[in-house]
Write a protein that binds this DNA or RNA. Sequence first.
DNA 1: ACAATTTACGAAAACGTTTTCGTGTAACAA
DNA 2: TTGTTACACGAAAACGTTTTCGTAAATTGT
Lengths: 341, 341
Amino acid sequence: MSVKVTLKTIAKQLGYSVSTISKALNNSDEISLQTKQKILAYVQDVGYQPNNLAVSLQRQRTMTIGVIVPELVHHFFSRVISGAENFATHAGFKLLISMSNDEWDKERQMTELLTNGYVDGLLVSVAKQTFEKGNFDHFSSLIEHNFPLVFFDRAPYGITVDKVTINDIEGGYIAVKHLIEKGAKKVAILTTPKHISVGADREKGYKKALIEAGLLPDENLIFRIDERAPIREQIELMFKQKALPDAVFAVNEKYAALTLKLAVQQGLNVPDDLMVIGFTDGFISKSTTPSLSTIAQHGFEMGEKAMEILLEKIEDKSALNNPKSVIIPTNLVERESTKKV
Amino acid sequence: MSVKVTLKTIAKQLGYSVSTISKALNNSDEISLQTKQKILAYVQDVGYQPNNLAVSLQRQRTMTIGVIVPELVHHFFSRVISGAENFATHAGFKLLISMSNDEWDKERQMTELLTNGYVDGLLVSVAKQTFEKGNFDHFSSLIEHNFPLVFFDRAPYGITVDKVTINDIEGGYIAVKHLIEKGAKKVAILTTPKHISVGADREKGYKKALIEAGLLPDENLIFRIDERAPIREQIELMFKQKALPDAVFAVNEKYAALTLKLAVQQGLNVPDDLMVIGFTDGFISKSTTPSLSTIAQHGFEMGEKAMEILLEKIEDKSALNNPKSVIIPTNLVERESTKKV
DNA sequence: ACAATTTACGAAAACGTTTTCGTGTAACAA
DNA sequence: TTGTTACACGAAAACGTTTTCGTAAATTGT
């Protein structure tokens, strides 16, 4: 069991003071070339690594950014993380990721862990349960203390914050307008419970497109999925309706893929009998047969932009006064599931 | 801009010493009930949060575990993380996740960041590029210094380490044996380059099953995908062969889904003309039409087990002598893509 | 040869905690 | 009363760094 090697032990071994060792390792010009080399050689030999805790504590800076996402498996979130990381790396920052599991308490716990010393700034997409509770205290106290914080995709409501999101209303609108242009007369929506803002907004866009086309939104065509129950069964309800819809807008990739599968099982032809469009352009949408039309969210750019804003706030704390709200545009990706005529 | 509140500022405000404040907050019985209450009340009021860096530095313990995965999007990895987190939470530990992006340098950088103070132990699944380079120095130096480290799924070769993996040879064997039992005579494999051990092992299982059934492995039926080039085109090569295979074993979910899609595009009926089986039981396999048979890996249990071993090592450093190697069993999940007759 | 400057290093404080040890006062026993 | 014990708190060291400041010795200038 090798004993831990610190500046102190090195200093003792080499007969220098701790400060000399530290300066030599930081390449200070207060130290002569010879001693630097001697120290460097020894340090290499014993494989010394500085203790990050001590360094950060002293420097009052960690050069790392925390990211909290609700879930990791989502293609979209992982794209955001990649974008954020890309930007951060170029600025010399590292990333520490953690997931809230869409739970309020875990989210609270992780933001406290990270913000009390581990990171210089935080990027977060808030948990579903947090929206349900409507309790954003763990964030507002950070904001009060001027801790650099930027939200992405899912931001708290009721408090003004820096955020980069997509225009979900517009995304929903574009999707449904596309369906209508392709001839749909009766379009259903598979969405989330109302308290999830992204789902609610996409639903608003859905209604807007319907009304604009002179179609009346019909509550019987709106299916709000409760993820605590089996999803498949809830989607099946749609197929049990007396008059089937001729198109469906699913607010995420998972619902879209499931709808597609169930439709085929029912003997329906997609897109001829039923058109399907999803949200998020991940691997799933490309790999189904027929492939799924969808609204692309550009997570990578969202991550980059969010990180850019965050680093600005870190560099220049005075920029904290005017919260920024950036919107990343979406766009339609047309594939086979809506390619009618 | 509220000034940062520390033990020192609290002490000054309340007229106590720093040590008294600290003890009160840690509920030491050296402090009278009255003063505790007074201090508690004040602390609540100003919203004091201890600095984790300082606490960890002093305690020489962080109560957090680092996890390094190659990628986040994979369903399998995120299941492992969930399992690990589940176990860790019960033991009072938190998780910090980071991804190597399958790059050697990023992997090295993150292990150094995490192990130099941030975490008490590390769980890692090694990056593809690390296998290519064959350079595991960043891990062996940790092992030399007795830092608690456990690998999962992808472990380094050439050095003995604690690890929990699946039996990839067996998994490949089971998959191919299933295809043969269903009547396949000419089974192709879509695998990774040879240096990726999981791919190589599944290929071994593939060959074993073939030989056992009296079929000769044919190099023309082995397709090693290079992910730096377009994957789709490489799979299409398989369909351009003079004599098509009647079954294919894809070593991961992505390749399987793509194969399925391309087969349908070629006008082939799956499973009648071509059977397909994948690896990893994620959302994709369930949502395709036809749904994909696959080998389930049980990532959640792998994560739990890996964490269990890691925490044991942390608690009892003497257990470091005999590295453990645990194997999580796999099993066949039969779905439509192989359901012939 | 002497002052002025530069060079090369060390002492000590600081970052924010925890913890060991010491100590003055109050309460108790004899 | 005096001696003992318990109580409630403070001083200071420690965790492993960085950084400011001070200062001998070496170098330079005249």
